[in-house]
């Protein structure tokens, strides 16, 4: 069996295994693992929203945690304070993230380091509100007792049901995300990342496209925020902290920027180390740091990047071998 075929088989097995783990977690494990997997899925989706700007458009946003938090707070407030029905609360959550995205979208006029700084400042604005406006957000005490979502008489009644709901929604939006990045619009974003001036010369309105990408990113972050509020059932300023934005950027970098699975692999690593490794190793931040250093130094395309590189290399080797065999055959004739 050629190396390429072995790698493909390994990939397929890994994918099937991931699917099986995704399906059976609530039954194979206990609520700890179910809750952890739900968090991984939710933060994976948030990481995808960052990757849309970071890898596909060449913008490094530091405010996706803010969209995430705005959506989470909106859902929590509407559900807890006003008893709004879940579908409306969820839509309002996503919409509020989108509106915040439209406002913060002015930052696409800046580029490079300035874009990072502007989005950092805007993100901290939301954090400041969530900490200081205690009459609205509950401050550090947060908003507690967010119920599981319901539709009329249908009600999600347990963490297990919630988990499957989260898995369904995350998979749906991940597929949607894949459509976005493969669409002509998505490809034009890649063009903007590679050369803005060339895209301008080709007649694309670069600023508008970046703005739209920014708003789409905020909507995806909003979906993650809505799921977060319903799953964790508690929203506090931690949701809007800078750490969330930074980690959401680190996840695709670790897992494999530009890929759909990379974000989730990164989420498994970061959330896994923090919650699982910390259970038996008090020096877990060192492990986290080492993983970051190793990935950045030796796998700049992330963990999935190693796999893809290997696959490409062995494909090329196979092709070369095929060509050589063909040459030999032709020479023999």
């Amino acid at each position: 069996m050629s190396m390429a075929r072995a790698l493909r088989m390994f990939g397929t097995i890994a994918l099937v295994l991931a699917g099986v783990i995704l399906l059976i977690t609530p039954y194979a494990g206990n609520p700890f693992w179910t809750g952890l997997m739900a968090q991984i899925l939710i933060f994976g989706l948030l990481a995808l929203s960052v990757d849309l700007l970071m890898r596909h458009t060449g913008l490094f946003p530091m405010c996706n945690g803010a969209f995430f938090a705005v959506a989470a707070y909106t859902v929590a407030m509407l559900e807890v304070n006003y008893g709004v029905a879940s579908p409306f609360a969820a839509l309002a959550g996503i919409a509020s993230a989108g509106v915040t995205g439209m406002v913060f979208g002015v930052s696409v006029r800046a580029s490079g380091v300035y874009f990072i700084l502007v989005t950092l400042a805007l993100g901290q604005l939301v954090w400041g509100v969530s900490v200081q406006w205690t009459w609205l957000t509950g401050g550090d005490n947060g908003i507690t007792n967010v119920p599981y979502p319901s539709l009329g008489d249908m009600r999600i009644g347990s963490l297990t049901q919630m988990y499957y709901f989260v898995a369904f929604v995350v998979i749906f939006f991940t597929l949607l995300y894949r459509q976005v990045i493969r669409s002509p619009f998505g490809l034009s974003l890649n063009g903007i990342r590679d050369s803005e001036s060339r895209m301008t010369a080709l007649g694309f309105n670069v600023t508008v496209r970046k703005y739209v990408a920014f708003v789409i990113s905020s909507l995806f972050a909003g979906v993650a925020g809505v799921l977060y509020a319903y799953t964790v059932q508690f929203v506090s300023p931690a949701a809007s902290s800078l750490l969330i934005s930074v980690e959401a950027a680190l996840m695709p970098i670790l897992g494999g920027p530009g890929t759909v699975f990379g974000a989730f692999i990164g989420a498994v690593i970061i959330i896994g180390i923090r919650n699982v490794v910390s259970g038996f190793l008090s020096g877990w931040p060192i492990v986290m740091g080492l993983v970051f250093i190793i990935v950045v130094l030796f796998a700049p395309k992330g963990i999935l990047g190693i796999f893809n590189d290997l696959l490409r290399r062995s494909d090329r080797r196979d092709q070369a071998a095929d060509a050589a065999r063909k040459d030999v055959r032709e020479a023999e004739q």
Partner: peptide
């Protein structure tokens, strides 16, 4: 002892881990 990192998301997981595992 479970490390919560002073973050509610971790604290929830830490509490569940202590309770179930």
């Amino acid at each position: 002892v479970a490390d919560t990192v002073c973050n509610p998301d971790n604290a929830i997981n830490a509490a569940r881990r202590l309770a179930f595992n």
